[in-house]
Each structure stands twice: as structure tokens, then as C-alpha cells.
Amino acid sequence: MDYSMEINGVVKSYPGSSFILDNIHMQIPYGKIIGLIGENGAGKTTLIQLILNQISADSGNIKIFGMNHRKMEKDIKSKIGFVMDECCFHTCLSAKEVGKILKYIYLQWNNKDFEVYLSRFEIDQEKRITELSKGMKNKLMLATALAHNPDILILDEITSGLDPVVRDDILNILKDFIATQKKSVFFSTHITSDLDKAADIIAFIHKGKLVFMEEKEKIKNTFRIYSCSNEKTDNIKNSEICAKYYENGQWHFLLKNSKSEIIGKEPTLDEIMLLFIKGGR
């Protein structure tokens, strides 16, 4: 088994809404950090909810560790560490009490590891969650996700709203996590600079469709960004244009595998997202 997770043709729509997560195919290899990017409402959280079987797909299937994610839900979830933007532990509990609760929920729970993570993250075990800062709460969530030794970590926007130091700490933890064993990280975020630092593969979802899923380095070699005035657009071959938009008297192009003689610049993930989103309007 080469992939920790395989998503095959997953479709999800909601009654009364025009949004549709459309025919998503993804393969998540071991030993990689996969960054999931997309605008608000693109379908990132819906995809994570489908993976966690919180909602049902209209069609398609998801295999995690080679098992059907609906039939083997309990076995799969015992090997998944899930962290989201919000701390959903009761605010009156302390980190120590959270550990005591989770000890009986996860069979592989390791309290020693949990304590090590808490001290590494400088979280006071006795302090109530309500007294912790947002960054500390996110770190506590991460500690609980790591302490049961999962094979895949699924993170939903955990770095948003955090200062750069805490974000950097979290990214380093993720790198350590995949470096030692056969593990994967599936990381949804708005902050593409985090992915520049940590991700190996980038998956971009736009309006419910998977636009691309490529190695980060390959993306940089594949795409070029080119801006020019109206008169110079003739130099560009239509087949190479992925997205374009017109703003402030200039055309902005995202070119794919461009063999034209024009010299574009290497785009950042932010620029790629921006071009796809603005170009799609």
C-alpha cells in the first residue's frame, strides 16, 4: 500500500445550494505533507468532513489505509489525528483532564508522549482551557492528536489567527512527524506561506473542483505568471493560458508549460490562487 488515503470520484452537493464538490480524485502518499488550498467556500472543509465521515458523499468512495472509510470507521479513526481551527474541548477542563478522558477513547493513547508534547509546547497541565491563549489551545489540540500515534494527521486551518512564531513551531512539529515514520499530513490552510515552508504536495480546490495536485517544486516549474498591456497579448498561445484577468490597464496571465518566448516570473502559491479565482469571475 503506497497511499495512506485514496479519494475516488467523490461528489457532494447540498439541497438548496449551488455548491457542489465535484468528482474529486486524490491520492495521499506516505511520508508527505499535503497542503490543501482554496478560497473560502471552495470545499476544503467539506472534503475533510467527508474524509472523517461526518457527512455522506453523494457518490464516489474514500479509502484510508486501504480500508473503506465508512465500513471500517472505528479502525480508521483510531489511526487519524484530527486538529481543527477551534478548540472543542470543554473550557472548564484542564489539559491533564483532557488526557485522562482521551486515554479511554484511544486504545493507543500514550500519556507519557502527551506529557512530553505538553511540556514541549509549554502548556501548563493544570491550567483550565479557558485560561489558554488561542495558540496554546491549538497546540493542545495538536498534542492530543499526536499522543495516540496516528498514521495520518488531518489539520483544518490550524495556523489561521496565530502569530508567526507559533505557526513556525507547528510547522516544525509537522515536519518532525513525517520525518521519523511512515506517516502523512493533510493540511488545509489559507496561509500559503505556511505551505511554502512545509508542504511537499499542493492540492488546489476552486469552486468545488480539484484544479491541480502536484509536487510543490513541479508547480513552480510548471506555471509562469506574465503581465502585459493589451497590445502584447498576441505573443501568448491560448493553449498555454490557465487563467487570466484584466486589472488597472494590464492583463495578468497564468501560463502552464509555456514554450512561448515570453519571460514570465515564477508564481507564488498566493498568485496562482489569485489568478484562478479572479480569472474565474
Binding site: L52, Q54, D75, K77, C88, L107
Partner: peptide, 13 residues
């Protein structure tokens, strides 16, 4: 606490 969101990620039926 929105505990349900947490609960569905646990290996519990």
C-alpha cells in the same frame, strides 16, 4: 463547546 465536532473524529460509534 461544539463537542460533537470533536466526537465525530474519535473512534467511537
Amino acid at each position: 463547546a461544539k463537542w460533537k465536532t470533536m466526537l465525530v473524529s474519535f473512534p467511537l460509534s
